[in-house]
Write a protein that binds this DNA or RNA. Structure first.
Length: 480
RNA sequence: GGCGCUAUCGUCUAGGGGUUAGGACGUGAGAUUCUCAAUCUUAAAACACGGGUUCGAUUCCCGUUAGCGCUACCA
């Protein structure tokens, strides 16, 4: 039974890199019928906040990455870390360090200036245990440091990168427990991962270099190693690590941009991971669109790339349009309703009509936000008219007069169908000696408030005879 | 600086000792049209560089270069 965790630090929102790591963890857990655990690493009290925690949870829920256990908060498990540090102290793997932050900073600066690697100099490493214990008992502030073996190498087998080896001499005696008793990252992750019986550690490749320290900790604690799997990072278009200056990096920002969560998930899954030949179809082409079930079915650590990937907004937009087009209107409706709520828009048509409207529009929409902004005329009689569209298609004042005349003809048209409305319009255009396109484009602006819309006659049928007549004749009186 | 990881079209990637190096997004051209998409056809586009190993390297090895990561009493 596999157990994997996603362990974000609430010092920021859930960014796309973290979201993808969470997705991989979740995919792995589901694929192996294992357990997906959520753990909040909030031991940096200064920078962590509850708002960030709720934002992270919201982002995970939006992506549909439900967790089986947790969320656990490290801030509530301080006793475990203290006890773990004590064990390490007792077996000689750790020692008290009385150096102050200021002293350390000074020495670091000096070492850097001298061109020497700024590692902890081991000053407190060989203090007699009894002395150290006495000083601590006397109330002197002390951190607890891990004792790195002074020779040899530490190696581990990464499920993605293969065997990775580090010389112990490159590692420093890092702090396990700060002088205020709060653990440092390395201690808390390892203590928790052991305590929570994690079998696989799937995390960003930025932790690859941290891993030997943690391997040493597992050893010192007599625990067996989990499988480490480091996943390559996501970069911005300039190939530097993705950050705020690349624009939206919070997953919730993508929600606000009208991205369908499954589309985002599909896109993210294929960034740094590939199903390989499994995606090949009979015609030789390779699929890119995969349902959640398919993703779960195909996912494996073997398909993971070794190099970083650039986040490609255009491709995300493509996934989004594909999902919007493929989803049944009933499935799109709740997502669209959220947009309407957010925009303060209240549709005035029946649910049945709304579903028909979605069906009419979904083939040409790129973002869920379109439904709240540019498509208002389809769901309410209260809609804005785009001035650029007026300028483009209704510049000639005579067009409005013709459309008004056309409205009169439409008033008595039976049946009012796509075929009949088109026939009538074309005959009317011929009669008046104008090109049908002029009337079609003008009518489109009046009926939808936009210069862009689905086939005009389909729109007419959707809106219904009464609305068409009303909107067509209102244009002239409104003096657009 | 030290250490670690990585390197296939602009981007995401498949592939792998002998291939016309495949697909997707995007881009160009054409078709269609009622606007905009979509759709269809089509085109351009890649194995970073240098050494090995080999009959033969894009593929294996080494180096160079470049990018990224780590190098805190952050995570």
């Amino acid at each position: 039974m596999t157990r994997v965790r996603f362990a974000p630090s609430p010092t920021g929102y859930l960014h796309v890199g973290g979201a993808r790591t969470a997705l991989f963890c979740w995919l792995f857990a589901r694929h192996t019928h294992g357990t997906f655990i959520l753990r909040i690493e909030d031991t940096d009290f200064e920078r962590s906040s509850e708002d960030m925690v709720s934002g992270i949870l919201e982002g995970l829920r939006w992506l549909g990455l439900e967790w089986d256990e947790g969320p656990f908060y490290q801030s509530q498990r301080l006793d475990l870390y203290r006890a773990t540090a004590d064990r390490l102290l007792a077996n000689g793997s750790a020692y008290y360090c009385f150096c102050t932050r200021e002293e350390l900073e000074q020495r670091r600066a000096a070492a850097t200036a001298a061109g020497v690697p700024p590692r902890y100099d081991g000053r407190c490493r060989n203090l007699p245990t009894a002395d150290a214990a006495r000083r601590v008992a006397a109330g002197e502030a002390a951190a607890i440091r891990f004792r790195i073996p002074d020779s040899g190498t530490t190696a581990f087998e990464d499920a993605v990168f293969g065997r990775v080896e580090f010389a112990n001499a490159e590692l420093e005696d890092f702090v396990l427990l700060r002088s205020d008793g709060v653990p440092t990252y390395h201690l808390s992750v390892v203590a928790d991962d052991i305590d929570m019986r994690m079998t696989h550690i799937i995390r960003g490749a930025d932790h690859l270099s941290n891993t030997p320290k943690q391997v040493l900790l597992y050893n010192a604690l007599g625990a067996s190693l989990p499988v480490f799997a480091h996943v390559p990072l996501i970069l911005g278009p300039d190939k530097t690590r993705l950050s705020k200056r690349h624009g939206a990096t919070s997953v919730l920002a993508y929600k606000d941009m009208g991205i369908v969560p499954e589309a985002f998930r599909n896109f993210l899954a294929l960034l740094g991971w590939s199903p390989g030949e499994a995606a090949r179809q009979a015609d030789g082409k390779e699929r890119e669109i995969f349902s959640t079930a398919e993703l779960v079915e195909m996912f494996s650590l073997e398909g993971m790339a070794h190099s970083n990937a650039v986040f490609n907004n255009e491709k995300l937009a493509w996934f989004n349009t594909e999902y919007i087009r493929a989803y049944a209107p009933e499935r799109l409706l709740p997502l669209i309703e959220q947009e309407w709520q957010r925009a303060g828009f209240v549709p005035s048509r029946s649910r049945e009509d709304i579903l028909a409207g979605i069906a009419l529009l979904q083939q040409r929409t790129r973002s869920l936000t379109d439904f709240a902004m540019t498509f208002r005329a389809y769901f309410s009689d209260d809609y804005p008219t785009d001035e650029a569209a007026v300028a483009k298609f209704l510049a000639d004042p005579s067009t409005l007069g013709l459309l008004r005349e056309l409205a009169v003809r439409y008033r008595t048209l039976t049946p009012f169908s796509e075929l009949s409305t088109e026939e009538l319009l074309r005959a009317f255009a011929a009669e008046k000696g104008v090109k049908p396109g002029v009337l079609i484009n003008g009518a489109r602006v009046l009926l939808t408030g936009q210069g862009v819309a689905p086939s005009l006659f389909a729109v007419m049928v959707y809106l219904g005879q009464q609305r068409v007549v009303q909107r067509l004749s209102a244009g002239a009186t409104a003096g657009i």
